[in-house]
Structures are given as structure tokens and as C-alpha cells.
């Protein structure tokens, strides 16, 4: 999409075992200062989202037309928008939307991608060929245009934008899992499990899936970052959240025309998007170092 980062080839299957102890992982994660900064940012935004009604000084819908485009100041920390609504409060409530869209669309992509990836990788043959071609097709599309077309077909709304983002990102996870499964399938212990007649479903659940988890978590965290930007981009193009929802991307496009007279209406929503995305990217990088050391950068 607009943020091509995620289309980077998913990390090739690492042969290293996932760290058996989560505690070890956490210890080495904690040493990564940048990752901790990222975690701090995200915890901060999550707290804001959870505590929104207690933090926000105003209702995000509350309008005061006479007080429109008011400069940032004591009464309105981030100023007001063109409907006289408090931008600070809108950004606080917008946190909920962005986190929700980012996380849930990635979860959707992961579920669908993992299922397709496992089927393709484990059962192989014509199913693999079919699913892999499907991934090729989806990846060959210009993502943002595909998402726009999907939203246009379903009608513009936050849910549909979320769905479109999830669909567009399915192959990212699908390919990742497929490659991982392909390499695991040839591992001795899997062969052994098969040899002793273990059921496919049990092999999948007990051996294969847990071993895919590391790369999925890494890619998933980075995917949240991308999904947040993608949702904001759709909102910016008028294909996402509908009024009066305080979605950050929509706030940007709504205020775009005031950039000269009231730059605060544009600066703060953009900064919020960037900070959240940065947070997830930092965590993702840190997780990669821990869970997927071969990809260390």
C-alpha cells in the first residue's frame, strides 16, 4: 500500500529454534533500549485509549461553531477544528480507533494468512499451487488501489476499511507461514512424529504452529504499524471512518484546507499517527532481534 514496508519479503524461515523460555526473551528484549522506548510509546497510547473518557477534557463530538479554528491554548491544548471541536479530545478518542483498526486487521490477516499458509505448505501439491498463485495475484496488485476498490464496493466505513486492509495483507502472513512450514516439514522430529502415526492436526497444532509463532509475532507487530497508516490513508481519501468519528487520517483530510490558517489542525493528528507507528516499529525491531535473530539488523 502506501507504506510498502510490509511487502518486504517476509523473513525467510529461520532454522533457529524459537527461544524456549519467554523469560529469556524478555530479558534480552529489555536490554534493547529502542525497543523499550517503543514499548513505552505503545503503553502510553494504550493507556490513553483505555482511559479516554477520564483524560479527554471534552466530548469528541461536542461542537462550538462560534469557537471554530481556535488556536492552541489553555482552554484547548491542541486548538479546535473547523466545527469548534477540541482537537486534543478528538486525538485521545482517535487513539482507540487507530489501535483497534491496526490490531484487529492484523489479527484478521494473521488468521487467514496462517490458515492458507499452513494448508499450502503442509499439504502442498495443487493446493499449494493454487494458494501460492492467489498470493502472487494479491501481491501484484497496487495495494492501496485494491483496498480503495474493495471499500468502494462494500461502502465506505471503518469496518470495511479494516476488512480491506486485512485482505490486502493476507499474503504477507500467508507466504511467511508457508515458507516456515515447508522447512519444518522436513525436520527430523516432524518426520518422526509422522512416522509414529501422529495425526496431521496434532502435528500442526503441537509442532508446526508453535514454531511459526516467532516470525508471526515479529511480522504482526510491524504489520500493525503498517495497518494503522493504511487505515489513516483510507480515511484521508474519504474511504474510511465516517463523521463524526475522530479517525486521525480523516482529521487530516478534513483539516487539510486550513493548513495555512490553522496548521495545528493538521500537525497534531499527523504526529499522533507517526508516534504510534514508530512505537510498533520499534517493538517489532526489538522482537525480531529476540525471536528471529537471523534477521537482526
Amino acid at each position: 500500500m502506501s507504506q510498502p514496508a510490509i511487502k518486504l519479503a517476509p523473513p525467510p524461515p529461520a532454522k533457529t529454534e524459537v527461544s524456549s523460555s519467554w523469560r529469556d526473551g524478555w530479558r534480552s528484549f529489555r536490554k534493547n533500549r529502542l525497543a523499550m522506548v517503543g514499548l513505552g510509546i505503545i503503553v502510553f497510547f494504550v493507556l490513553i485509549a483505555v482511559l479516554a473518557p477520564f483524560i479527554a477534557p471534552y466530548d469528541y463530538k461536542e461542537q462550538e461553531l462560534v469557537n471554530r479554528l481556535h488556536k492552541p491554548g489553555g482552554e484547548h491544548w491542541f486548538g479546535t477544528d473547523d466545527l469548534g471541536r477540541d482537537i486534543f479530545s478528538r486525538i485521545i478518542y482517535g487513539t482507540r480507533i487507530s489501535l483497534w483498526v491496526g490490531i484487529s486487521s492484523v489479527v484478521g490477516s494473521i488468521v487467514a494468512g496462517t490458515m492458507l499458509g499452513i494448508v499450502a505448505g503442509y499439504y502442498g501439491r495443487w493446493l499449494d499451487a493454487l494458494i501460492s498463485r492467489f498470493f502472487d495475484i494479491l501481491l501484484a496488485f497496487p495495494g492501496i488501489l485494491l483496498a480503495i476498490a474493495i471499500v468502494a464496493a462494500l461502502g465506505p466505513s471503518l469496518q470495511n476499511a479494516l476488512l480491506a486492509i486485512a485482505i490486502v495483507n493476507v499474503p504477507v502472513f500467508g507466504r511467511l507461514v508457508r515458507a516456515r512450514v515447508l522447512s519444518l516439514r522436513e525436520e527430523e522430529y516432524i518426520m518422526a512424529a509422522r512416522a509414529i502415526g501422529m495425526k496431521n492436526s496434532r502435528i500442526l497444532w503441537q509442532h508446526i504452529l508453535p514454531n511459526c509463532l516467532g516470525p508471526i509475532i515479529v511480522q504482526g507487530t510491524l504489520g500493525i504499524a503498517t495497518a494503522i497508516i493504511e487505515a489513516a490513508a483510507l480515511g484521508f481519501l474519504g474511504m474510511g471512518a465516517q463523521p463524526p468519528e475522530p479517525e486521525w487520517g480523516k482529521m487530516l483530510s478534513d483539516s487539510r484546507q486550513f493548513i495555512q490558517n490553522a496548521p495545528w489542525t493538521v500537525i497534531f493528528p499527523g504526529l499522533s499517527i507517526m508516534l504510534t507507528v514508530l512505537g510498533f516499529n520499534l517493538i517489532g525491531d526489538g522482537l525480531r532481534d529476540v525471536l528471529d535473530p537471523r534477521m537482526k539488523s
Binding site: K61, E62, L83, P156, G238, Q242, P243, P244
Partner: peptide, 18 residues
């Protein structure tokens, strides 16, 4: 959006679609 806010004051809830 402006009209929506006024309608809400008289108990008429609206969902804006565009």
C-alpha cells in the same frame, strides 16, 4: 456534522454516511 449535533439535542440520533 453540524446538523447531526443539533438533531442529537432533540433526541434524533443520526448516522452520517457519505
Amino acid at each position: 456534522e453540524a446538523i447531526q449535533a443539533d438533531f442529537a439535542k432533540i433526541g434524533v440520533k443520526t448516522k452520517i454516511e457519505s
